[in-house]
Amino acid sequence: MDELTSRVRAFAEERDWQQFHTPKNLAMALAGEVGELIAEFQWLTPEHSAVVMSDPNAGSRVKAEMGDVMIYLTRLADVLGVDLIEAALTKLEDSARRYPVDQAHGSAVKR
């Protein structure tokens, strides 16, 4: 994660893009990229979406959009000083408390 963060930061600095990388702009760009990822799945059946990576063209597009999402999320975390690994682990621990296995197993009920 540290290497990716450093490389994304350097990419922005080399192009003097820090001035545009406000949290608001990065969050909006991230939302746009998530939208592009969603668009790759929009009209697929649930079955086709589960095997999308087996289609070389569709799989390549999905992978590229996931890369864009990861880059923008990484940059946003860097600008805000958020440790993404720590944030994810904390959220996972919180979710484990909210959804204990004995109550949540096999259920999609939101708590």
Rank of each mutant, 00 (worst) to 15 (best):
M1H: 12
M1L: 07
D2Y: 11
D2W: 10
L4M: 12
R7P: 05
V8S: 04
R9G: 00
R9V: 05
R9K: 01
E13I: 10
E13W: 02
E14W: 03
E14I: 08
R15L: 04
R15N: 07
R15A: 06
R15I: 07
D16E: 15
D16N: 11
W17M: 12
Q19E: 14
F20K: 04
H21Q: 13
T22E: 05
T22F: 08
K24H: 10
K24C: 09
K24S: 07
N25G: 02
N25S: 08
L26S: 06
L26I: 01
L26V: 01
M28K: 14
M28A: 15
M28D: 15
A29G: 02
A29F: 03
A29I: 06
L30P: 01
A31I: 13
G32Y: 09
G32F: 06
E36P: 01
I38T: 06
E40R: 00
E40S: 05
Q42C: 10
W43I: 09
W43P: 03
E47L: 10
H48M: 14
S49Q: 09
M53D: 13
D55E: 11
P56T: 07
P56E: 10
A58M: 15
A58L: 15
A58F: 12
G59D: 05
G59E: 02
G59H: 03
V62L: 00
V62D: 03
K63P: 03
A64E: 07
E65T: 03
G67V: 01
D68Y: 00
M70Q: 00
I71V: 05
Y72C: 02
L73G: 13
T74E: 00
R75W: 01
R75N: 00
A77S: 01
V79P: 04
V79R: 01
L80H: 03
G81N: 01
V82A: 11
D83T: 03
L84R: 05
L84M: 07
L84A: 04
A87N: 01
A88S: 13
A88T: 12
A88E: 13
A88Y: 10
L89C: 08
L89K: 09
L89T: 11
T90H: 11
L92E: 09
L92W: 09
E93G: 13
E93F: 11
D94Q: 14
D94Y: 08
D94M: 12
D94N: 09
A96H: 13
R97C: 13
R97V: 13
R97M: 13
R97F: 06
Y99C: 02
Y99H: 11
Y99F: 10
P100L: 06
V101C: 10
V101T: 06
V101N: 06
V101K: 11
A104M: 05
A104R: 01
A104H: 07
H105F: 01
G106K: 06
S107E: 07
S107D: 07
A108R: 12
V109A: 08
K110R: 15
R111P: 11
